[in-house]
C-alpha cells in the first residue's frame, strides 16, 4: 500500500505550498486516477510517490518504507515505476532493448536475468519486434510503450503515469491505454494522472485535485457525473455521460451514471424502442 499522511510541499521556501495537507492511500492492484486542472499539484504529488520529491511536512510510505529514508529509496523506486509525459526525455538507451535494460542494470542484476526481463517486458507491451531499433525511429506512442517496458523490467508493484498520453494521437493513446489495462489485470497497481476522462471510466477510484488539495474522491460513477462541477474546475466530463445527463434533464427516463458508449447506447436504444411500441 502507498500511504500519504498530511503531505505539505513547496518548491520555494517563501512561495505558496503546491501540496497542502494531502492524505491518501493506494491499495495494491488497484487502478487509481488523479485528475485536476493544470497547476493543481497532481504532478508534484506523483513525484512524491517514488521519492523524486520529498515532503516538507508529512510522510509518504510505500509498503511501510518511508521515502525520506535514503536507504530504502532504491527499493521504493524499483517498486514504484514512473512514466512521464514527454516520450523523448525518458529514453536513455541507443536502442529499444538497451533502454529497457537501463533500470535492471541500475539494480545490478546479472546479464542473463536482465536479458530475460527485457524480453518479457517488450513482449508484454508488444514492442518485441522493435528491440534493436534506435529510439528516434519510433513514433511517440511506441516510445511511450518502450518507457512502460523500461519500468516493467524492474518488476514494479505500482506504476505511476504522469499524463502518459498527452503527446499521443488518438490511436496511439488507445494502444497505450489498452496496455495499462492489461498490466492492471496482471495485478500491478496503476496510478494514472490524465486529462482524458474517457481513460478513467473504469478506475477503481478517482481523486480530484485543485489548489494543492484533494477536493473529492470516489468511484467514477460518482465523480464523473457531476458535470457542472467538473466544468467549473475546467475539466469536463466524458461526453457520453454529459449527453445522458442532458437527456435526463429533458425529463427522459435515463440513469445518468453510464460512462461508456456501449452502456449509453443500450439505454438510448431501449428508450427509443419503448417509445416506438407505445406509438
Amino acid at each position: 500500500m502507498i500511504e500519504a499522511r498530511g503531505l505539505i510541499f513547496k518548491y520555494e521556501k517563501s512561495g505558496d505550498p503546491v501540496l497542502k495537507d494531502i492524505s491518501l492511500e493506494i491499495l495494491e492492484g488497484t487502478y487509481v486516477a488523479i485528475i485536476g486542472p493544470n497547476g493543481c499539484g497532481k504532478s508534484s504529488l506523483l513525484r512524491h510517490l517514488d521519492g523524486l520529491l520529498l515532503p516538507d511536512k508529512g510522510e509518504l510510505l510505500v509498503d511501510g518504507m518511508r521515502t525520506r529514508d535514503t536507504g530504502s529509496l532504491r527499493e521504493i523506486r524499483r517498486m514504484v515505476g514512473m512514466v512521464f509525459q514527454n516520450p523523448d526525455t525518458q529514453i536513455v538507451g541507443t536502442t529499444v532493448e538497451e533502454d529497457v535494460s537501463f533500470g535492471p542494470g541500475n539494480l545490478g542484476l546479472p546479464p542473463l536475468e536482465i536479458r530475460e526481463r527485457v524480453d518479457t517486458a517488450l513482449d508484454l507491451v508488444g514492442m518485441k519486434k522493435y528491440a534493436k531499433r534506435p529510439p528516434h525511429t519510433l513514433s511517440s506512442g511506441e516510445k511511450q510503450l518502450v518507457a512502460i517496458a523500461g519500468v516493467l523490467a524492474m518488476h514494479p508493484k505500482y506504476i505511476a503515469l504522469d499524463e502518459p498520453t498527452a503527446y499521443l494521437d488518438p490511436s496511439a493513446r488507445m494502444i497505450v491505454f489498452r496496455v495499462l489495462k492489461k498490466l492492471h489485470q496482471e495485478g500491478i497497481a496503476i496510478i494514472h494522472v490524465t486529462h482524458h476522462m474517457e481513460e478513467i471510466v473504469d478506475a477503481d477510484e478517482i481523486f480530484v485535485m485543485n489548489g494543492g488539495k484533494i477536493i473529492q474522491r470516489g468511484k467514477p460513477a460518482e465523480v464523473l457525473t457531476r458535470i457542472a462541477w467538473l466544468k467549473e474546475l475546467g475539466l469536463g466530463a466524458p461526453r457520453v455521460t454529459e449527453l445522458l445527463c442532458r437527456l435526463k434533464g429533458m425529463g427522459l427516463d435515463i440513469i445518468a451514471e453510464s460512462l461508456t458508449l456501449d452502456d449509453a447506447c443500450a439505454q438510448i436504444f431501449s428508450l427509443i424502442e419503448g417509445k416506438a411500441s407505445e406509438a
Binding site: 532504491r74 512521464f84 514527454n86 526525455t89 536513455v92 538497451e98 542494470g105 545490478g108 527485457v118
Partner: peptide, 25 residues
Amino acid sequence: RRADDLIVAMEARGFRSGPRTNMNE
C-alpha cells in the same frame, strides 16, 4: 529543459552514479 527531464527520468529508474550491470556482457 530536456536534460532536466532526463535526469528526473533516470533517477526514477534507480540510476545513481557508479557501477551498473550490462545486459550484453
